[in-house]
């Protein structure tokens, strides 16, 4: 229950930040990828600049997280699927002008084409799943989703 509330709250925070920065608008992403505007790059860089040292510090002091055990950062080595998937993702991102979280915010802001984008994202994820007998790394960046329900 508590874990679900944490999920909801962090979702609200994430969606709110994306909306406050207009990242759900095609024009924002398009201007960024056309290299007309650099504010999104500054946004991404400052988010990483704030989180990277804090994460490193939390890991170094062997922080025990309340819901996920000891904090462990991913240090996966690059493999072929990372380059292949990344390349396809980039092409799709440029054409659709959105990515998974901003597409959701797009719909919440009343732009109905966001529903078309969300449908495509669901289909793309599903196509990959159908291609494989056993789904590989399903989850998030470094798809390391572990089932936390037992602890919740």
């Amino acid at each position: 229950m508590k874990l679900n509330a944490i999920g909801l709250l962090f979702g609200i925070g994430f969606g709110g930040v994306l909306a406050s920065f207009d990242l759900h608008e095609y024009d924002t992403i398009h201007a960024m990828l056309r290299l007309d505007e650099f504010r999104v790059y500054f946004f991404m860089a400052s988010a990483i600049a704030v989180s990277a040292p804090l994460l490193w510090w939390l890991e170094a002091r062997k922080t025990n997280t309340p819901f996920g055990g000891q904090l462990r950062l991913s240090q996966s080595k690059p493999q072929k699927h990372h380059v292949q998937g990344g390349a396809l993702f980039g092409v799709g991102w440029a054409i659709a002008g959105t990515c998974p979280a901003p597409a959701l915010v797009m719909v919440s802001s009343g732009a109905w084409l966001g529903l078309v984008a969300m449908a495509g994202i669901f289909l793309g994820l599903q196509l990959r799943e159908m291609q494989q007998a056993t789904p590989d790394h399903v989850g998030d960046g470094e798809h390391r989703e572990i089932n936390l329900e037992v602890k919740a």
């Binding site: 993702f89 980039g90 793309g124 990959r128 799943e129 590989d136």
Partner: peptide, 15 residues
């Protein structure tokens, strides 16, 4: 475009 990025995210393991 969205289908392509969804597929790519699944292959890469994240977006």
């Amino acid at each position: 475009g969205a289908t392509l990025l969804g597929y790519g995210a699944a292959v890469a393991g994240g977006c």
